[in-house]
């Protein structure tokens, strides 16, 4: 490379080679990182999920079995874990979208100064360690914590509310973590909407609400869909929130993966669970992508 750089001095030659040089190959090192440290580990995980478990050594090399998948499909314990994870993730997605849209709309309609302040308030929690956020919610929601203390002092409640170590706590945690992404995605899409469309709807006599429902909202559906995908996928793989804010109401898939690896030391079953979770997430991403492409094509036509 260096040699070529120093010897190649003639203008005409280098101009031609500059044009001929296919620069997309500069991306190869980054793709190699993905291949070696993401694709190979996933394949490795798939292989281990098909091995025989052996207590004491995690798995027996060179063996083939479908045991871990048979267990996942037949044991109702795992069915419950998957349905709990899916259910909570759906709830979190709906709540997250409902909270994200108004503030995204506000960010988009505000002047430059207020916009910076609002973005600041959204991005700081986004860039804060999720354990710090969860810790904050533990202080607020715990039985003797700030929320219950305040409500009891005001005389609004007599006994502490159960707002943590249950599904509610998990939902608060995951909404807190994913909300900034959803807000920024929706705000970015709203910023790209041509204001003159809304104005002409208003000129033709549509009320502000009607103009919003018939122009702005439909045009922002790509943003809503992307935000929903991000929240849902994140929630499906979330570990810290259910582990620290959840209780005995249910377990997330990731918690079970982790305990199979770190405590039960059953690598084939842990890998089987992880592969299943991974496939679910890939499926969701593919469906979301295809749906986005189809809607884009339909609206273009």
């Amino acid at each position: 490379m260096v040699e070529a750089a120093t010897t190649e001095t003639s203008g005409g030659v280098s101009r031609a080679s500059w044009a001929r040089l296919d620069r997309v190959w500069l991306a190869v090192p980054a793709v190699v990182l993905t291949a070696v440290f993401f694709v190979i580990p996933i394949l490795f995980m798939g292989r281990i999920s098909l091995s025989v478990h052996e207590s004491g050594s995690a798995y027996r090399e060179g063996t083939w079995t479908l045991d871990s998948y048979v267990t996942l499909l037949t044991d109702s314990f795992y069915l419950r874990i998957f349905s709990y994870t899916l259910g909570v993730s759906l709830l979190v997605t709906v709540l997250g979208l409902a909270l994200a849209y108004p503030i995204a709309y506000w960010i988009n309609r505000s002047g430059p100064r207020l916009k910076v302040i609002l973005l600041f308030a959204v991005i700081v929690p986004l860039w804060t360690n999720i354990l710090v956020l969860i810790y904050g919610w533990l202080i607020i929601l715990s039985p003797g914590g700030a929320l219950n203390d305040g409500l009891m002092r005001l005389g609004l409640i007599d006994a502490p509310l159960r707002v943590v170590y249950n599904t509610f706590g998990i939902v608060v945690g995951i909404v807190q973590i994913t909300l900034p992404y959803a807000i920024l995605i929706i705000a970015a899409v709203l910023a790209g909407i041509d204001r003159s469309l809304v104005e002409s709807a208003r000129d033709m006599g549509a009320s502000r609400l009607k103009a919003f429902l018939h122009v702005t909202l439909p045009l922002s559906t790509p943003g809503i869909a992307s935000a929903a995908t991000v929240i849902f996928v994140w929630s499906m793989g979330e570990y810290a929130s259910p582990q620290l804010l959840g209780g005995s109401a249910g377990k997330f898939v990731s918690q079970e993966v982790s305990s199979q690896f770190l405590t039960a030391f059953n690598w084939p079953r842990g890998a089987g669970l992880a592969v299943t979770l991974f496939s679910l997430i890939v499926l969701i991403l593919v469906v979301a992508q295809t749906a986005a492409r189809v809607t884009a094509r339909r609206s273009a036509a």
Binding site: F38, P41, I42, M45, W234, G237, F261, A274, L277, F278
Partner: peptide, 8 residues
Amino acid sequence: PGLILAVG
């Protein structure tokens, strides 16, 4: 998700 990358 971090968990998938971590386990792999």
